[in-house]
Design a protein around this nucleic acid. Sequence first.
DNA 1: CCATAAGCGGACCGAGCGGTCATGTTATCG
DNA 2: CGATAACATGACCGCTCGGTCCGCTTATGG
Lengths: 199, 199
Amino acid sequence: MSSPRPLRADAARNRQSLLAAAADEFAERGLDASVADIARRAGVGKGTVFRHFATKDDLLAAIVIDRIDTLNTVGEKLLGAADPGAALLEFLTVAAHQRQQRDLSFLQEAGDLSPEVVRVRAHMFDIVHRLVDRARDYGVVRADVTGADVILLMCAPNYVASYVPDAPPDLWRRYLAIIFDGLRPQSAHPLPHPPPSVL
Amino acid sequence: MSSPRPLRADAARNRQSLLAAAADEFAERGLDASVADIARRAGVGKGTVFRHFATKDDLLAAIVIDRIDTLNTVGEKLLGAADPGAALLEFLTVAAHQRQQRDLSFLQEAGDLSPEVVRVRAHMFDIVHRLVDRARDYGVVRADVTGADVILLMCAPNYVASYVPDAPPDLWRRYLAIIFDGLRPQSAHPLPHPPPSVL
DNA sequence: CCATAAGCGGACCGAGCGGTCATGTTATCG
DNA sequence: CGATAACATGACCGCTCGGTCCGCTTATGG
Protein backbone atom coordinates (compact mmCIF):
# COMPACT_ATOMS: atom_id res chain seq x y z
CA MET A 1 0.00 0.00 0.00
CA SER A 2 2.60 2.52 1.09
CA SER A 3 5.26 3.53 -1.38
CA PRO A 4 8.41 1.37 -1.07
CA ARG A 5 10.70 4.39 -0.93
CA PRO A 6 10.06 7.19 1.58
CA LEU A 7 10.19 10.76 0.31
CA ARG A 8 13.38 12.72 0.60
CA ALA A 9 13.31 15.32 3.38
CA ASP A 10 13.06 18.40 1.17
CA ALA A 11 10.50 16.70 -1.06
CA ALA A 12 8.28 15.96 1.92
CA ARG A 13 8.55 19.57 3.05
CA ASN A 14 7.64 20.85 -0.40
CA ARG A 15 4.71 18.52 -0.58
CA GLN A 16 3.27 19.94 2.62
CA SER A 17 3.91 23.52 1.51
CA LEU A 18 2.14 22.76 -1.73
CA LEU A 19 -0.90 21.28 -0.05
CA ALA A 20 -1.21 24.24 2.29
CA ALA A 21 -0.67 26.80 -0.46
CA ALA A 22 -3.13 25.06 -2.75
CA ALA A 23 -5.77 24.89 -0.03
CA ASP A 24 -5.41 28.62 0.60
CA GLU A 25 -5.40 29.51 -3.05
CA PHE A 26 -8.42 27.37 -3.85
CA ALA A 27 -10.21 28.83 -0.86
CA GLU A 28 -9.57 32.39 -1.99
CA ARG A 29 -9.94 32.21 -5.76
CA GLY A 30 -12.05 29.16 -6.32
CA LEU A 31 -11.15 26.14 -8.40
CA ASP A 32 -9.65 28.19 -11.21
CA ALA A 33 -6.70 29.29 -9.15
CA SER A 34 -3.68 28.78 -11.38
CA VAL A 35 -1.01 26.21 -10.73
CA ALA A 36 1.64 28.90 -11.20
CA ASP A 37 0.15 30.96 -8.37
CA ILE A 38 0.00 27.95 -6.12
CA ALA A 39 3.64 27.17 -6.82
CA ARG A 40 4.68 30.75 -6.14
CA ARG A 41 2.74 30.78 -2.89
CA ALA A 42 4.44 27.57 -1.84
CA GLY A 43 7.83 28.98 -2.79
CA VAL A 44 8.63 26.29 -5.35
CA GLY A 45 8.85 26.06 -9.11
CA LYS A 46 5.90 25.06 -11.23
CA GLY A 47 7.57 21.83 -12.24
CA THR A 48 7.64 20.73 -8.63
CA VAL A 49 3.88 20.85 -8.46
CA PHE A 50 3.57 18.32 -11.25
CA ARG A 51 6.26 16.13 -9.75
CA HIS A 52 4.09 15.67 -6.67
CA PHE A 53 0.69 15.72 -8.34
CA ALA A 54 0.40 14.48 -11.90
CA THR A 55 -2.37 16.92 -12.66
CA LYS A 56 -4.07 19.92 -11.16
CA ASP A 57 -7.12 17.79 -10.48
CA ASP A 58 -4.97 15.35 -8.56
CA LEU A 59 -3.80 18.17 -6.33
CA LEU A 60 -7.37 19.21 -5.71
CA ALA A 61 -8.33 15.61 -5.08
CA ALA A 62 -5.59 15.24 -2.46
CA ILE A 63 -6.96 18.21 -0.53
CA VAL A 64 -10.54 17.09 -0.88
CA ILE A 65 -9.79 13.55 0.23
CA ASP A 66 -8.01 14.82 3.31
CA ARG A 67 -10.90 17.07 4.25
CA ILE A 68 -13.58 14.47 3.70
CA ASP A 69 -11.56 11.96 5.66
CA THR A 70 -11.32 14.13 8.75
CA LEU A 71 -14.99 15.00 8.33
CA ASN A 72 -15.78 11.30 8.23
CA THR A 73 -13.87 10.75 11.45
CA VAL A 74 -15.96 13.42 13.14
CA GLY A 75 -19.09 11.90 11.68
CA GLU A 76 -18.33 8.41 12.97
CA LYS A 77 -17.95 9.77 16.47
CA LEU A 78 -21.18 11.75 16.23
CA LEU A 79 -23.08 8.63 15.25
CA GLY A 80 -22.77 7.56 18.88
CA ALA A 81 -23.76 10.89 20.41
CA ALA A 82 -26.56 11.10 22.94
CA ASP A 83 -28.58 13.78 21.14
CA PRO A 84 -29.00 12.83 17.46
CA GLY A 85 -30.36 16.26 16.61
CA ALA A 86 -27.40 18.09 18.06
CA ALA A 87 -25.12 15.49 16.44
CA LEU A 88 -26.45 16.24 12.96
CA LEU A 89 -26.19 19.97 13.51
CA GLU A 90 -22.65 19.57 14.78
CA PHE A 91 -21.70 17.52 11.76
CA LEU A 92 -23.06 20.14 9.39
CA THR A 93 -21.26 22.83 11.34
CA VAL A 94 -17.94 21.06 11.05
CA ALA A 95 -18.57 20.41 7.37
CA ALA A 96 -19.34 24.03 6.62
CA HIS A 97 -16.52 25.28 8.78
CA GLN A 98 -14.04 23.09 6.99
CA ARG A 99 -14.53 24.37 3.51
CA GLN A 100 -14.36 27.92 4.63
CA GLN A 101 -14.90 30.89 2.35
CA ARG A 102 -15.41 28.96 -0.82
CA ASP A 103 -16.98 25.69 -1.66
CA LEU A 104 -14.53 23.30 -3.26
CA SER A 105 -17.41 21.72 -5.11
CA PHE A 106 -15.92 18.30 -4.89
CA LEU A 107 -19.27 16.86 -5.83
CA GLN A 108 -19.23 18.54 -9.21
CA GLU A 109 -16.97 17.93 -12.20
CA ALA A 110 -18.67 14.59 -12.65
CA GLY A 111 -16.94 11.91 -14.65
CA ASP A 112 -13.28 12.61 -14.06
CA LEU A 113 -13.03 12.09 -10.34
CA SER A 114 -10.56 9.65 -8.92
CA PRO A 115 -11.72 6.34 -7.40
CA GLU A 116 -10.29 7.45 -4.07
CA VAL A 117 -12.50 10.54 -4.03
CA VAL A 118 -15.48 8.41 -4.95
CA ARG A 119 -14.70 6.08 -2.07
CA VAL A 120 -14.41 8.63 0.74
CA ARG A 121 -17.33 10.55 -0.66
CA ALA A 122 -19.49 7.46 -0.62
CA HIS A 123 -18.44 6.87 2.96
CA MET A 124 -19.45 10.41 3.87
CA PHE A 125 -22.78 10.01 2.15
CA ASP A 126 -23.43 6.89 4.20
CA ILE A 127 -22.61 8.69 7.43
CA VAL A 128 -24.94 11.55 6.58
CA HIS A 129 -27.73 9.15 5.76
CA ARG A 130 -27.35 7.48 9.12
CA LEU A 131 -27.09 10.76 11.01
CA VAL A 132 -30.25 11.97 9.33
CA ASP A 133 -32.11 8.73 9.99
CA ARG A 134 -31.24 8.91 13.66
CA ALA A 135 -32.25 12.56 13.91
CA ARG A 136 -35.52 11.79 12.17
CA ASP A 137 -36.31 8.91 14.52
CA TYR A 138 -35.48 11.23 17.37
CA GLY A 139 -38.08 13.68 16.07
CA VAL A 140 -35.85 16.65 15.30
CA VAL A 141 -35.86 16.19 11.53
CA ARG A 142 -39.09 16.15 9.54
CA ALA A 143 -40.32 12.86 8.11
CA ASP A 144 -40.20 13.83 4.44
CA VAL A 145 -36.52 14.79 4.35
CA THR A 146 -33.85 12.29 3.32
CA GLY A 147 -30.12 12.01 3.73
CA ALA A 148 -29.70 13.00 0.10
CA ASP A 149 -31.48 16.26 0.82
CA VAL A 150 -29.11 17.06 3.65
CA ILE A 151 -26.09 16.18 1.54
CA LEU A 152 -27.23 18.62 -1.10
CA LEU A 153 -28.04 21.35 1.39
CA MET A 154 -24.74 20.87 3.19
CA CYS A 155 -22.76 23.30 1.05
CA ALA A 156 -25.49 25.91 0.77
CA PRO A 157 -24.58 28.00 3.85
CA ASN A 158 -21.07 28.70 2.60
CA TYR A 159 -22.33 29.34 -0.90
CA VAL A 160 -24.94 31.79 0.29
CA ALA A 161 -22.55 33.65 2.57
CA SER A 162 -19.94 33.94 -0.17
CA TYR A 163 -22.18 36.40 -2.00
CA VAL A 164 -21.75 39.20 0.47
CA PRO A 165 -18.66 41.23 -0.48
CA ASP A 166 -16.71 41.43 2.79
CA ALA A 167 -18.53 38.76 4.70
CA PRO A 168 -17.66 38.16 8.34
CA PRO A 169 -16.03 34.75 8.47
CA ASP A 170 -18.84 33.19 10.48
CA LEU A 171 -21.79 34.46 8.48
CA TRP A 172 -22.44 30.98 7.16
CA ARG A 173 -23.55 29.96 10.64
CA ARG A 174 -26.61 32.13 10.28
CA TYR A 175 -27.71 30.39 7.11
CA LEU A 176 -26.90 26.96 8.40
CA ALA A 177 -29.23 27.73 11.31
CA ILE A 178 -32.02 28.90 9.02
CA ILE A 179 -31.71 25.90 6.73
CA PHE A 180 -31.52 23.55 9.68
CA ASP A 181 -34.73 25.07 11.02
CA GLY A 182 -36.24 24.21 7.66
CA LEU A 183 -35.41 20.59 8.31
CA ARG A 184 -37.32 20.51 11.60
CA PRO A 185 -40.83 19.08 11.81
CA GLN A 186 -42.38 22.13 13.45
CA SER A 187 -42.58 24.25 10.30
CA ALA A 188 -42.95 21.42 7.81
CA HIS A 189 -45.23 22.07 4.87
CA PRO A 190 -45.73 19.43 2.17
CA LEU A 191 -42.81 19.28 -0.25
CA PRO A 192 -43.67 19.83 -3.91
CA HIS A 193 -41.11 17.41 -5.37
CA PRO A 194 -39.81 13.94 -4.44
CA PRO A 195 -36.23 13.63 -3.19
CA PRO A 196 -33.48 12.70 -5.67
CA SER A 197 -32.90 8.96 -5.73
CA VAL A 198 -29.17 8.87 -6.42
CA LEU A 199 -26.29 10.13 -4.27
CA MET B 1 -32.62 57.74 -24.30
CA SER B 2 -33.40 55.47 -27.23
CA SER B 3 -30.83 55.21 -29.99
CA PRO B 4 -31.43 57.77 -32.78
CA ARG B 5 -31.09 55.17 -35.54
CA PRO B 6 -33.13 51.96 -35.49
CA LEU B 7 -31.28 48.72 -36.15
CA ARG B 8 -31.21 47.26 -39.58
CA ALA B 9 -33.54 44.29 -40.03
CA ASP B 10 -30.87 41.59 -40.17
CA ALA B 11 -28.97 43.18 -37.28
CA ALA B 12 -32.05 43.11 -35.09
CA ARG B 13 -32.60 39.47 -35.93
CA ASN B 14 -29.02 38.57 -35.10
CA ARG B 15 -29.23 40.45 -31.84
CA GLN B 16 -32.19 38.37 -30.74
CA SER B 17 -30.56 35.13 -31.83
CA LEU B 18 -27.48 36.09 -29.86
CA LEU B 19 -29.38 36.85 -26.70
CA ALA B 20 -31.25 33.56 -26.90
CA ALA B 21 -28.14 31.54 -27.70
CA ALA B 22 -26.15 33.21 -24.94
CA ALA B 23 -28.88 32.60 -22.40
CA ASP B 24 -28.94 28.90 -23.30
CA GLU B 25 -25.18 28.59 -23.32
CA PHE B 26 -24.75 30.37 -20.00
CA ALA B 27 -27.49 28.22 -18.52
CA GLU B 28 -25.81 25.02 -19.63
CA ARG B 29 -22.14 25.72 -19.13
CA GLY B 30 -22.05 28.49 -16.59
CA LEU B 31 -20.44 31.86 -17.03
CA ASP B 32 -17.34 30.47 -18.70
CA ALA B 33 -19.19 29.51 -21.83
CA SER B 34 -17.05 30.78 -24.68
CA VAL B 35 -18.07 33.59 -27.00
CA ALA B 36 -17.18 31.40 -29.97
CA ASP B 37 -19.68 28.75 -28.86
CA ILE B 38 -22.37 31.35 -28.35
CA ALA B 39 -21.76 32.73 -31.83
CA ARG B 40 -21.88 29.27 -33.38
CA ARG B 41 -25.11 28.49 -31.56
CA ALA B 42 -26.64 31.71 -32.80
CA GLY B 43 -25.48 30.95 -36.34
CA VAL B 44 -23.33 34.06 -36.70
CA GLY B 45 -19.65 34.89 -36.77
CA LYS B 46 -17.70 35.72 -33.66
CA GLY B 47 -17.15 39.28 -34.77
CA THR B 48 -20.89 39.86 -34.83
CA VAL B 49 -21.08 39.19 -31.13
CA PHE B 50 -18.71 42.04 -30.40
CA ARG B 51 -20.51 44.35 -32.79
CA HIS B 52 -23.63 44.05 -30.67
CA PHE B 53 -22.00 43.75 -27.25
CA ALA B 54 -18.69 45.44 -26.67
CA THR B 55 -17.57 42.76 -24.27
CA LYS B 56 -18.61 39.35 -23.05
CA ASP B 57 -19.64 40.89 -19.76
CA ASP B 58 -21.90 43.31 -21.59
CA LEU B 59 -23.67 40.40 -23.21
CA LEU B 60 -24.13 38.77 -19.84
CA ALA B 61 -25.31 42.06 -18.40
CA ALA B 62 -27.94 42.43 -21.11
CA ILE B 63 -29.41 39.04 -20.24
CA VAL B 64 -29.25 39.65 -16.54
CA ILE B 65 -30.87 43.06 -16.78
CA ASP B 66 -33.72 41.63 -18.80
CA ARG B 67 -34.34 38.88 -16.30
CA ILE B 68 -34.20 41.10 -13.26
CA ASP B 69 -36.48 43.57 -14.96
CA THR B 70 -39.22 41.03 -15.59
CA LEU B 71 -38.71 39.72 -12.08
CA ASN B 72 -39.15 43.22 -10.76
CA THR B 73 -42.40 43.56 -12.65
CA VAL B 74 -43.69 40.41 -11.02
CA GLY B 75 -42.49 41.64 -7.65
CA GLU B 76 -44.27 44.96 -7.96
CA LYS B 77 -47.54 43.18 -8.61
CA LEU B 78 -47.03 40.81 -5.71
CA LEU B 79 -46.54 43.73 -3.34
CA GLY B 80 -50.27 44.29 -3.59
CA ALA B 81 -51.30 40.66 -3.14
CA ALA B 82 -53.79 39.68 -0.47
CA ASP B 83 -51.63 37.01 1.19
CA PRO B 84 -48.12 38.41 1.85
CA GLY B 85 -46.76 34.97 2.71
CA ALA B 86 -47.93 33.42 -0.53
CA ALA B 87 -46.70 36.52 -2.35
CA LEU B 88 -43.17 36.11 -1.06
CA LEU B 89 -43.14 32.41 -1.89
CA GLU B 90 -44.45 33.14 -5.35
CA PHE B 91 -41.75 35.73 -5.91
CA LEU B 92 -39.03 33.32 -4.87
CA THR B 93 -40.54 30.66 -7.10
CA VAL B 94 -40.49 32.94 -10.11
CA ALA B 95 -36.95 34.01 -9.30
CA ALA B 96 -35.69 30.46 -9.04
CA HIS B 97 -37.63 29.33 -12.08
CA GLN B 98 -36.15 32.10 -14.17
CA ARG B 99 -32.51 31.31 -13.75
CA GLN B 100 -33.07 27.69 -14.51
CA GLN B 101 -30.38 25.03 -14.26
CA ARG B 102 -27.50 27.32 -13.40
CA ASP B 103 -27.18 30.43 -11.36
CA LEU B 104 -25.98 33.34 -13.42
CA SER B 105 -24.43 34.75 -10.29
CA PHE B 106 -25.17 38.28 -11.29
CA LEU B 107 -24.45 39.34 -7.74
CA GLN B 108 -20.88 38.20 -7.91
CA GLU B 109 -17.99 39.56 -9.95
CA ALA B 110 -18.06 42.67 -7.79
CA GLY B 111 -16.43 45.80 -9.05
CA ASP B 112 -16.90 45.58 -12.79
CA LEU B 113 -20.64 45.57 -13.06
CA SER B 114 -22.40 48.12 -15.21
CA PRO B 115 -24.42 50.95 -13.61
CA GLU B 116 -27.53 49.58 -15.27
CA VAL B 117 -27.12 46.23 -13.54
CA VAL B 118 -26.55 48.00 -10.26
CA ARG B 119 -29.74 49.98 -10.76
CA VAL B 120 -32.14 47.13 -11.52
CA ARG B 121 -30.49 45.01 -8.86
CA ALA B 122 -31.00 47.72 -6.27
CA HIS B 123 -34.62 47.93 -7.33
CA MET B 124 -35.00 44.18 -6.87
CA PHE B 125 -33.38 44.33 -3.47
CA ASP B 126 -35.87 46.99 -2.43
CA ILE B 127 -38.77 44.88 -3.60
CA VAL B 128 -37.54 41.85 -1.68
CA HIS B 129 -37.11 43.89 1.45
CA ARG B 130 -40.68 45.12 1.23
CA LEU B 131 -42.04 41.65 0.43
CA VAL B 132 -40.23 40.24 3.43
CA ASP B 133 -41.37 43.04 5.72
CA ARG B 134 -44.96 42.46 4.73
CA ALA B 135 -44.68 38.71 5.20
CA ARG B 136 -43.09 39.22 8.61
CA ASP B 137 -45.85 41.58 9.73
CA TYR B 138 -48.30 39.00 8.50
CA GLY B 139 -46.66 36.41 10.73
CA VAL B 140 -45.47 33.97 8.12
CA VAL B 141 -41.79 34.97 8.30
CA ARG B 142 -39.86 34.82 11.56
CA ALA B 143 -38.95 38.06 13.32
CA ASP B 144 -35.17 37.65 13.13
CA VAL B 145 -34.91 37.28 9.37
CA THR B 146 -34.27 40.26 7.13
CA GLY B 147 -34.68 41.05 3.46
CA ALA B 148 -30.93 40.66 3.00
CA ASP B 149 -31.19 37.10 4.26
CA VAL B 150 -33.84 36.26 1.72
CA ILE B 151 -31.87 37.90 -1.08
CA LEU B 152 -28.91 35.72 -0.23
CA LEU B 153 -30.97 32.56 0.08
CA MET B 154 -32.79 33.27 -3.16
CA CYS B 155 -30.32 31.48 -5.41
CA ALA B 156 -29.68 28.57 -3.09
CA PRO B 157 -32.40 26.21 -4.38
CA ASN B 158 -31.03 26.22 -7.91
CA TYR B 159 -27.49 25.94 -6.65
CA VAL B 160 -28.31 22.97 -4.48
CA ALA B 161 -30.27 21.17 -7.16
CA SER B 162 -27.51 21.69 -9.71
CA TYR B 163 -25.34 19.22 -7.82
CA VAL B 164 -27.38 16.18 -8.73
CA PRO B 165 -26.11 14.80 -12.06
CA ASP B 166 -29.29 14.42 -14.10
CA ALA B 167 -31.58 16.48 -11.96
CA PRO B 168 -35.26 16.64 -12.83
CA PRO B 169 -35.89 20.22 -13.94
CA ASP B 170 -38.15 21.01 -11.00
CA LEU B 171 -36.00 19.63 -8.21
CA TRP B 172 -35.21 23.13 -7.01
CA ARG B 173 -38.82 23.46 -5.87
CA ARG B 174 -38.14 20.92 -3.15
CA TYR B 175 -35.28 22.93 -1.71
CA LEU B 176 -37.07 26.22 -2.05
CA ALA B 177 -39.84 24.68 0.06
CA ILE B 178 -37.41 23.46 2.72
CA ILE B 179 -35.60 26.78 2.90
CA PHE B 180 -38.86 28.67 2.99
CA ASP B 181 -39.97 26.51 5.89
CA GLY B 182 -36.79 27.61 7.61
CA LEU B 183 -37.98 31.19 7.31
CA ARG B 184 -41.25 30.49 9.12
CA PRO B 185 -41.67 31.34 12.80
CA GLN B 186 -42.84 27.86 13.83
CA SER B 187 -39.42 26.24 13.82
CA ALA B 188 -37.38 29.32 14.66
CA HIS B 189 -34.40 28.76 16.91
CA PRO B 190 -32.13 31.67 17.87
CA LEU B 191 -29.75 32.62 15.07
CA PRO B 192 -26.05 32.48 15.93
CA HIS B 193 -24.97 35.46 13.79
CA PRO B 194 -26.39 38.90 12.98
CA PRO B 195 -27.65 39.55 9.45
CA PRO B 196 -25.33 41.23 6.95
CA SER B 197 -25.82 44.99 6.95
CA VAL B 198 -25.19 45.74 3.29
CA LEU B 199 -27.17 44.63 0.22
C1' DC C 1 33.42 12.61 1.40
C1' DC C 2 31.81 11.06 -2.91
C1' DA C 3 28.83 8.85 -6.18
C1' DT C 4 24.40 8.71 -7.43
C1' DA C 5 19.75 9.00 -7.74
C1' DA C 6 16.06 11.84 -6.26
C1' DG C 7 14.38 16.25 -6.58
C1' DC C 8 14.04 20.94 -8.47
C1' DG C 9 13.28 24.98 -11.62
C1' DG C 10 11.72 27.59 -15.28
C1' DA C 11 11.93 27.99 -20.31
C1' DC C 12 8.93 26.02 -23.38
C1' DC C 13 4.68 24.08 -25.87
C1' DG C 14 0.00 23.79 -27.76
C1' DA C 15 -4.69 24.92 -26.81
C1' DG C 16 -8.27 28.04 -25.95
C1' DC C 17 -9.71 32.36 -24.45
C1' DG C 18 -11.60 37.45 -25.22
C1' DG C 19 -11.18 40.88 -28.37
C1' DT C 20 -9.70 43.40 -33.13
C1' DC C 21 -9.67 44.49 -37.92
C1' DA C 22 -9.50 44.52 -42.93
C1' DT C 23 -12.23 42.78 -46.31
C1' DG C 24 -16.46 41.34 -48.37
C1' DT C 25 -21.73 41.45 -48.23
C1' DT C 26 -26.40 43.41 -47.94
C1' DA C 27 -30.28 46.18 -46.41
C1' DT C 28 -32.00 50.63 -47.20
C1' DC C 29 -33.53 54.80 -49.45
C1' DG C 30 -33.40 58.55 -52.77
C1' DC D 1 -31.58 50.64 -59.69
C1' DG D 2 -27.54 52.24 -57.82
C1' DA D 3 -24.92 54.42 -54.16
C1' DT D 4 -23.68 54.07 -49.66
C1' DA D 5 -23.56 53.23 -45.01
C1' DA D 6 -24.47 49.60 -41.98
C1' DC D 7 -23.37 45.08 -41.08
C1' DA D 8 -21.10 40.31 -41.03
C1' DT D 9 -17.09 37.53 -41.16
C1' DG D 10 -13.18 34.73 -39.73
C1' DA D 11 -8.29 35.08 -39.77
C1' DC D 12 -5.55 37.05 -36.49
C1' DC D 13 -3.37 38.95 -31.94
C1' DG D 14 -1.87 38.77 -27.22
C1' DC D 15 -2.50 36.43 -23.24
C1' DT D 16 -2.96 32.79 -19.79
C1' DC D 17 -3.59 28.30 -18.78
C1' DG D 18 -2.21 23.19 -17.71
C1' DG D 19 1.38 20.32 -18.61
C1' DT D 20 6.35 18.83 -20.38
C1' DC D 21 11.28 18.44 -20.28
C1' DC D 22 16.04 18.73 -19.62
C1' DG D 23 19.97 20.68 -17.36
C1' DC D 24 21.17 21.71 -12.70
C1' DT D 25 21.16 21.10 -7.48
C1' DT D 26 21.06 18.53 -3.31
C1' DA D 27 19.99 14.99 0.07
C1' DT D 28 21.47 10.51 1.22
C1' DG D 29 23.88 6.03 2.21
C1' DG D 30 28.02 3.58 2.02
